[in-house]
């Protein structure tokens, strides 16, 4: 499981946690999130997230 961080607001998507409030189940891999998904905090595109080490 990996995490990805929004380059603008620092919002972190953690694959192991998912985003249940947005209908993204726990364990959803980053690669499986739709390309038009945006950062819920600021609207940054999925492409502008960067992988972060935990």
């Amino acid at each position: 499981m990996k995490s990805y961080q929004c380059i603008v607001r620092g919002f972190v998507y953690d694959e192991s946690l998912g985003l249940p409030a947005e209908g993204i189940a726990r364990g959803t891999r980053w690669a499986d999130i739709p390309g038009d998904w945006e950062c819920p905090d600021c609207g940054v595109a999925k492409a502008d997230f960067e992988m972060v080490e935990i």
């Binding site: 603008v8 607001r9 945006e38 905090d41 600021c42 609207g43 940054v44 595109a45």
Partner: peptide, 10 residues
């Protein structure tokens, strides 16, 4: 705010 900037930039 940030979100309008993202919309504008695209």
């Amino acid at each position: 705010y940030v979100m309008p900037i993202m919309q504008q930039a695209r």
